[in-house]
């Protein structure tokens, strides 16, 4: 039982990182995408491959994965400079499916069978195995990402992001380089997703393409919407609620082939209800104040 709770705690930490980083993109910069799981996957595969095939230390591998993922976010950032709204969602759909296809078909990723044998991380000569140390490691990473995200959103940088979200033309005419802000936000958001991916790989010890497929992107989306876009606390709560809730339902005995679709249906219903009745999410701001002023 204790082990079970600790394992859920690791997942919650990973999804806090994913939710917070995705919220930077959706909630603060207003850039809607369904490709976050692709970045999560790029981070996971890069970290895992570096550790398993080249024997690189966990932190170095993670740092390299962060850089690689941030660079690979540029192809998706480019359409965001040209189009917005619906078109960006579609471009991100395309990006997500291309990456899924890469995870599935590249020889080095192990294809559909997945990539087993990811070693446990070694921190200052101490091998992080077992539940408690992993919880500590993931909690540390989650706090680090939360802190970074908090820094980003409360800085002048974050203020400009919200300005772009609410009125891109106004931000531009105020002399802000909107293009650069979007590219950097994509890079930060993707880099954090890579951290989550690296953690997930060493935690489970095995990764395979379905963990980073389009439905996973949708789940991250749901988590942010339920918690509330544009609020970091909301994403933390969204992660806790949406991970803990189905885990609790696990005690109701049900075959997995029914339980999995049932969970997806639950998420879908949550999104529809929230979008109709409480679009700002659990902790969202009522409406951007800027809008009333203009």
């Amino acid at each position: 039982m204790t082990t079970f709770i600790l394992e859920v705690a690791v997942l919650i930490n990973i999804y806090i990182i994913l939710g917070v980083s995705f919220n930077l993109l959706v909630g603060y910069a207003g850039l809607f995408s369904v490709a976050h799981a692709a970045f999560y996957g790029i981070g996971a595969y890069t970290t895992a491959l570096l550790m398993a095939k080249l024997g690189v230390n966990f932190f170095l591998a993670l740092a390299l994965a962060v850089v690689v993922t941030a660079l690979l976010s540029i192809p998706l950032a480019i359409p965001s400079l040209r189009v917005s709204g619906d078109y960006l969602v579609i471009a991100s759909f395309g990006f997500q499916l291309i990456m899924s296809s890469v995870f599935n078909n590249l020889a080095i990723t192990g294809g559909a069978a997945g990539l087993p044998g990811i070693p446990k991380p070694v921190v200052f000569g101490y091998r992080v195995a077992g539940s408690l140390p992993i919880v500590a490691l993931s909690l540390g990473m989650a706090l680090l990402c939360l802190g970074a995200a908090w820094r980003v959103t409360t800085s002048p940088f974050g203020r400009v992001l919200r300005a772009i979200r609410d009125d891109e033309v106004a931000a531009q005419s105020a002399g802000k380089n909107v293009q650069a802000f979007k590219v950097i936000t994509f890079a930060i958001s993707a880099a954090m997703a890579a951290v989550a991916g690296g953690l997930y790989g060493v935690y489970v010890g095995f990764i395979s393409p379905p963990s980073f497929a389009v439905m996973e992107s949708f789940f991250i989306f749901v988590l942010v919407i339920v918690g509330g876009t544009g609020t970091l606390r909301g994403s933390v709560i969204g992660a806790v609620v949406l991970i803990a809730l189905p885990e609790a339902l696990r005690f109701v005995r049900m075959p997995e082939e029914v339980a999995f679709p049932l969970r997806q249906i639950l998420y879908a219903v949550l999104v529809i209800l929230f979008m109709i009745f409480r679009p700002q999410g659990l902790l969202g701001e009522q409406a951007p104040r800027e809008e009333q002023g203009s």
Binding site: F32, V222, E257, Q264, Y267, V271, I272, M275, I276
Partner: peptide, 28 residues
Amino acid sequence: LRRRNAAPTTVMIVSIAVMTFLENGIAI
């Protein structure tokens, strides 16, 4: 959503949710 003047992107998100709902309903 139309009655609440929802943004086009909101409607799009809901349509993805409806898709998820139906596909998993079929799976069950």
